[in-house]
Simulated scan of single mutants.
Amino acid sequence: MRHRDRQSRFLLAGSLAIAIVTSLICIGAALAHEATPTAALPQGWSYPFACCANYDCKEVPQSSISERPEGYVIKDTGEVIAYRDKRVKDSPDGEYHWCAHQAGLDAGKTICLFVPPPSY
């Protein structure tokens, strides 16, 4: 009987260790969603969790965003985001990044829009 008790304890301890390690990995992954490295920021940067929930953001080409007097236009959806809208953020790497519901699908509604700083 003692052998079985040791085996059971060993299996339980191993299962618990695996569960703890898996939880720590998941927590670490949930803290930030990384932007792809660029020439301006070769190490990349982290999207704020409030914008991406760890999967909703992606870099988009400049041609995907246009500007009108009333704000930024997301060409794929036609959505207009006012220049002073709290969802508009400065882009750390000078590229456009769009964060939208539905895991970044183009049909989504904008959560955050990272835009390059205006050039002078």
Rank of each mutant, 00 (worst) to 15 (best):
I20M: 02
V21Q: 00
T22A: 14
T22R: 05
S23G: 11
S23K: 02
L24K: 08
L24W: 10
I25A: 12
I25G: 06
C26I: 14
C26T: 15
I27T: 14
I27E: 12
G28Q: 03
G28N: 08
A29I: 12
A30W: 08
A30T: 07
A30S: 12
L31S: 07
L31D: 06
L31I: 11
A32I: 04
A32D: 10
A32E: 12
H33L: 09
H33A: 15
H33G: 09
H33V: 06
H33W: 12
E34T: 08
E34L: 15
E34F: 07
E34D: 09
A35H: 07
A35M: 07
T36D: 13
T36L: 08
P37I: 03
P37V: 04
P37G: 01
P37E: 03
P37L: 02
T38M: 04
A39V: 12
A39K: 11
A39S: 07
A39H: 02
A39L: 07
A39T: 10
L41P: 00
L41E: 04
P42D: 04
Q43F: 03
Q43Y: 03
Q43V: 05
G44P: 04
W45R: 04
S46M: 00
S46D: 10
Y47M: 14
Y47A: 11
Y47Q: 10
Y47E: 09
F49V: 12
A50W: 07
A50F: 09
A50V: 13
C51A: 15
C51G: 06
C52D: 15
C52K: 03
C52M: 02
A53I: 06
A53Y: 06
